[in-house]
Nucleic acid binder design. Structure first.
Ligand code: MN
Ligand code: MN
Ligand code: MN
Ligand code: MN
Lengths: 218, 218
DNA sequence: AAAAATATTTAGGCAAAACTAAAAATAGTT
DNA sequence: AACTATTTTTAGTTTTGCCTAAATATTTTT
């Protein structure tokens, strides 16, 4: 499997989480920053190798074996992110691009030993679950903070947007993974919310609340 | 710099250690397991980018900037090897191929932090020196055990051949990096030698002695 | 239902990095 | 010095992954 094929398979996996019926050519092109015609070329190759099922004009979805391949790339990506943060001391907003390269190193022995070295982590530094060697991963009951209810308390467990800009905003506001968040008020006019976190009150815009995952219950 | 360019530059660096006047096309092709015509193609590209000085039929040598590039690839290769052995518990004969891939990850921040994490090692698991960020490295006064003198004691500090087969042979004979070796006898007929190591006497063929580096003095 | 807008595919090409086969240069030998 | 053997380069292809421009299919709007 080439690096390019791995990148395509991974993107199709991520996009199919949002739209399970079929991933469109343009969506892939947008995510990978390539042209739609290049995507069409690659989809044919991936279909030939039986990693996706593809019908002209109808989008693609991963096959059984394609899904496992995708999960293995995601596994490698997230394990390397844990390594970079936990062992090398990188901040959570610095690791994505490096992991984007490291995820393509081909060695099952390496990733197995890395997993062991890190203590078999279940989540990466952004709260995303790490598949095990079989592709299995923890599934949490999570909702967006923008969908939460007034006067309930939640736990902040993940980000939808993991761009450096957003992560740095969270650092600045001292909103860290695992923190309890009490939803005090929802402003009807602009859907901004008022929360209590770290014993302090904070106002978040809808855009922010829309990118924070919290545990559904308690 | 592409992965292929990095591999070529690194091979030219290694070969020029042995033949400093100029590295031949065939030598490069042999090491990289490609055809001489492919090498000629690449040498033109490398010359265009000013990493080698190349004249038709006269072989190549690295320029100042090519030499630094080569040392940075070697630095990454050897640091990753230390990581694989010291942190992940790989044996010294298992790490070369993985490091061959890891050496191409592009991030100065990563390699700087990895170096720090490993405690700024000076040597890799095979006894080869690790260049620092400026390209400087320790130069030891070493000779081959086959060139050593009778009734002198040396310290085993490196291997010339670092193929898995040879490393596994050394493991089997319990010949480990850092061990003192006393040269007891040299057999004139076949140049085999008798040594004392780990309080035991051992006979080594010339081929073995020809691939072991020892400290020149004491 | 037809027209317009959007999405996708096809056709034709390009650059990188490899290859084979043939030509040219260099080195070794009589 | 001339011939031979070896090394190196050139010329012409192939594959992968990308591109632009044009054609075709699908979706949305009127
Ligand atoms: Mn990637
Ligand atoms: Mn992540
Ligand atoms: Mn390499
Ligand atoms: Mn080494």
């Amino acid at each position: 499997m080439t690096i390019s094929e791995e990148n395509y398979i991974k993107v199709i996996y991520h996009l199919s989480q949002v739209s399970p019926k079929g991933v469109t050519t343009n969506a892939i092109a947008g995510t990978l920053d390539t042209k739609a015609s290049s995507v069409t070329d690659m989809l044919k190759k991936l279909a030939d190798k039986n990693w996706v099922s593809y019908q002209k004009y109808q989008g693609v979805s991963l096959t059984e074996s394609g899904l496992l391949k995708a999960k293995m790339v995601v596994r490698k990506h997230r394990l390397w992110e844990v390594f970079l943060v936990e062992k090398l001391g990188f901040a959570w907003d610095e690791v994505h691009d490096i992991a984007e390269e490291l995820e393509h190193i081909q060695s099952d022995a390496l990733i197995g030993r890395l997993d062991e070295f890190l203590g078999y982590p279940s989540f990466d530094p952004h709260g995303d679950p790490i598949p095990n060697a079989k592709g299995e991963m923890v599934k949490e009951e999570r909702i967006l903070l923008s969908e939460a209810q007034r006067n309930h308390t939640y736990r902040f467990i993940g980000v939808k947007d993991s761009s450096p800009g957003f992560l740095q905003y969270l650092d600045k506001q001292k909103i860290a993974l695992g923190a309890p968040i009490e939803l005090l008020e929802i402003e009807p006019f602009d859907h901004s919310i008022c929360i209590r976190i770290n014993e302090q009150e904070l106002v978040l815009s809808q855009k922010i609340a829309d990118n924070l995952y919290v545990l559904k219950h308690v």
